[in-house]
Amino acid sequence: MSDYAGFLITWTTYGTWLPGDVRGWRERSQGVQPARPQLESWCRDRLAHDAVVLRTGDRDTVEDACREHCRFRGWELLAVNARSNHVHVVIAASVSPQTVRDQLKANCTRRLRTQTEPLVVERTWSRGGDCQVLPNEEALADAVAYVLEGQDRQH
């Protein structure tokens, strides 16, 4: 029996949510951090290329790639929502959330580069991503609702 019900995993497209961002950001091992505009500006000045924004077709490709990979691995994909600048998935899997995240990002990149209108950039995604362990069925249901219904709400 697992000590968790599943994972809420989020990753961003390259250059769209930088350290210091006013929306909040996470520093490795430090948690959520306040806005630091000078840090954000410094990071933006050092981008290797323009920020990546997913087109509607790209978003469909990403969601299909997540579904395909989860079927292949035998993971239970409970929700997926690809936005213009980030992706959310809720998954039940018997491997680490970081493994799930990294495999999904790699598969999505491959599919984006081979779709009818390819998205070919040096870096598609930001490094890493947020992996939240969902400890119980209630947390899992809340995460699914957030991913499927909460993305278009004004905060």
Rank of each mutant, 00 (worst) to 15 (best):
T114C: 07
R113F: 07
A48S: 06
R46S: 11
R83Y: 07
E122W: 08
V100I: 03
T109C: 05
V80D: 00
Q115L: 02
S96T: 15
L119H: 01
V87H: 01
C108E: 00
N107A: 07
V62S: 00
A51V: 08
A106C: 10
A51H: 10
N107V: 11
R111F: 07
S84F: 07
R67Y: 03
N81C: 11
C70K: 01
E76N: 13
V121H: 03
H49P: 01
P118D: 06
Q103P: 03
N85P: 08
R101T: 03
R71W: 15
A82Q: 02
L112M: 15
D45N: 11
F72A: 15
A48P: 03
V121Y: 02
R101N: 14
R110T: 12
R46Y: 05
V120M: 03
R55I: 13
N107I: 05
D58I: 15
L119C: 01
R71Q: 12
V95S: 01
G129D: 01
T56K: 08
T109I: 11
K105Q: 09
K105I: 12
E63H: 10
H49I: 12
A65I: 06
W75I: 07
N85F: 05
V90I: 10
E63P: 02
R67C: 09
Q115R: 13
R113L: 09
R73K: 11
V120N: 12
L78K: 03
F72R: 15
R111L: 03
T124C: 02
V121T: 06
V89W: 00
A51Q: 14
P97W: 04
R83T: 09
R71H: 13
C43Q: 05
P118I: 14
P97A: 10
R101V: 13
R46Q: 15
A48V: 10
D102W: 14
E63S: 07
T109P: 03
D58R: 04
D130F: 15
V121Q: 08
C70T: 04
S94L: 13
R71S: 07
E63V: 10
T99P: 04
G74W: 03
S94C: 08
A82H: 09
R73E: 07
D50H: 05
T114Y: 04
L78S: 06
V90Y: 09
R111K: 06
R111H: 13
Q98D: 09
Q115F: 10
H88E: 08
L54K: 02
N85T: 11
G129T: 07
E117W: 05
